[in-house]
């Protein structure tokens, strides 16, 4: 977006490039194949959305009353109860960490996935205005993030099966399970494959779904490239979007913690759509050109459909996490 009318492929590549920090030199790098590199954008949004989860649930948890619950508490309780029901269905042992982890995983992944619905150019353009070259806002389309979470689940399963069953039983299941003692090596190989396939499929499923969704948004935006703004307008639109996003966040905050009917009902009803609309027009569209309207149209259509994937993938990730932990704890 910096020079006029970049080609579609460079536009797409630009959107798929991480903001990377080399941990050995402490310098921003690009497309590094080295292991000791951190994708700052992924980690930043991952932490930010984790904090959003805490910001939504923690104040409520601290103020939770067993009396008549307020609306927000009701919402939090409905969510908690939903997760608790899912965990109780799938997990039959007593555990202190499985249910809270399922709650966290569901909402964290859900929030990460929702980042996909932000207009593809909005935050990257805002970042560019602040001098940041690349920005990927969707942590769950970074395989590092999803595989990291699924590997954590894997390690927890590993530890948990030893914790619940003891070394002897785990060893017996690993070496003698499907075919008896005469095919011991085959048993072990099968077990290893079975166990490794769990974290891989868990992480790659989420990554694949979200990456595909993101790419489709980028492609839809790329279709309207030729109507992009003159280069000197880019910082302006980016800054405008940044301001409107901040306003939207403040509004959400007021709604969540404000008092009185205005804060609860009318303010979001009036201001939020206006803020979103204004933000979309300024940030989403580099300029008011003919193709931009098509981008709104297509992206909205895909976005509405994408909600399904966003919720479903978060739900699947949570349920499988619980199921794997349950399998690790149960005797076969």
């Amino acid at each position: 977006m910096t020079t006029e009318a970049p080609s579609s492929s460079s536009y797409i590549l630009h959107h798929l490039t991480y903001l990377q920090l080399d941990l050995r030199t402490w310098k921003i790098v690009e497309n590094s194949q080295n292991f000791w590199v951190v994708n700052i954008d992924s980690i930043f949004f991952s932490v930010l959305l984790g904090l959003v989860f805490i910001g939504l649930f923690w104040p409520m948890a601290r103020r939770a009353t067993h009396g008549v619950p307020a609306r927000w508490q009701n919402f939090v309780e409905v969510c908690t109860e939903f997760v608790d029901g899912q965990v109780k269905d799938a997990f039959h042992q007593k555990s202190k960490f499985v249910a809270p982890m399922a709650l966290l995983v569901f909402f964290w992944v859900l929030f990460m996935n929702i980042m996909d619905l932000l207009p593809v150019d909005s935050l990257p353009t805002a970042a560019e205005a602040m001098g940041i070259g690349h920005l990927r806002v969707l942590p769950s389309s970074d395989p590092n993030i999803t595989l990291s979470m699924s590997l954590t689940v894997f390690f927890l399963c590993f530890w948990y099966s030893f914790h619940c069953k003891g070394l002897k039983l785990v060893a017996r299941e690993a070496f003698f399970h499907p075919f008896g003692k005469w095919l011991l090596p085959v048993n072990f190989v099968l077990k290893v494959v079975e166990e490794l396939s769990k974290p891989l499929s868990l992480g790659l499923r989420l990554f694949g779904n979200m990456y595909a969704g993101e790419v489709i948004f980028i492609l839809l935006a790329a279709m309207t490239l030729h109507y992009s703004a003159p280069a000197h307008l880019a910082p302006l639109t980016g800054t405008a979007f940044f301001i409107f996003s901040a306003l939207a966040l403040v509004t959400v905050g007021l709604v969540a913690y404000g008092k009185g009917p205005w804060m609860r009902a009318w303010l979001p009803l009036l201001i939020l759509p206006a803020v979103i609309a204004a933000g979309s027009i300024f940030g989403f569209l580099p300029a008011i050109g003919g193709g931009a309207y098509f981008q709104i149209l297509f992206a909205t259509g895909w976005g509405i459909f994408h909600w399904l994937i966003i919720g479903l993938q978060a739900y699947i990730f949570m349920v499988l996490t619980v199921a794997y932990l349950s399998m690790a704890a149960e005797h076969h």
Binding site: V38, N39, A61, A64, W108
Partner: peptide, 28 residues
């Protein structure tokens, strides 16, 4: 390409699980 983001996210994940387990889930 896999890189150290893996480790960073793992740490963040564990901290958040611990926090949820300690301060969010029980009171609710």
């Amino acid at each position: 390409s896999l890189n150290a983001t893996l480790i960073a996210q793992l740490i963040v994940f564990l901290i958040l699980v611990w926090f949820t387990m300690k301060f969010i889930w029980p009171p609710i």
